[in-house]
């Protein structure tokens, strides 16, 4: 079981805000590391607007991508996680230590806006990525504490 340390994220200024700079692309790039994204990946806003969302266009490795920048639902945030270092700023060992079986992750950056890209399809409400947000409202209902009134209402309904 992995652990995620969000303590750094709770302080407003301690981690970078990458809102609008996070992209989800419809391909798997077998590379892990930094790259000169802004020099090569140049999204352009188009004239097209669907359901109030401005369509964007970009190219990657010769393919045309169509994307949309969306805000994450309120109450939710995006985080960029990285392997947590075992020591904190004072050189002291942290409470959470990373092991092979229990990797420890740390929020390195956050974002509340991101751009997702489709290959040759205009972004729409039917995209799996946006549809996965449906889970949020369901999760909320599932985890809402049940009040006595609710129970009463249900038992009355059964009679």
């Amino acid at each position: 079981m992995g652990t995620i340390d969000f303590r750094a994220a709770s302080d407003e200024n301690s981690i970078a805000d990458l809102s609008g700079q996070v992209h989800q692309v419809p391909c798997c790039i077998r590379f892990d590391g930094s790259a000169e994204v802004s020099h090569y990946f140049k999204p352009k806003s188009t004239e097209v607007e669907i359901d109030g969302v401005r369509m964007e266009e970009a190219h990657f490795r010769g393919r045309r991508l169509q994307g949309a920048t969306i805000s994450l639902p309120s109450g939710y945030s995006g985080f960029v996680l990285g392997q947590a270092s075992n020591q904190n700023a004072n050189g002291k060992r942290k409470a959470c230590s990373s092991t092979e079986e229990n990797p420890c992750w740390e929020a390195k950056a956050k974002f509340d806006k991101m751009t997702y890209w489709n290959h040759d399809n205009l972004p729409s409400k039917d995209d799996t990525f946006l549809r996965s947000f449906h889970w949020f409202s369901i999760a909320e209902a599932l985890h809402k504490p049940v009040k006595v009134e609710d129970l009463v209402a249900v038992s009355h309904g059964e009679k």
Partner: peptide, 8 residues
């Protein structure tokens, strides 16, 4: 170079 796999 870095391999890129596309769904299509």
């Amino acid at each position: 170079e870095v391999e890129v796999a596309w769904e299509s």
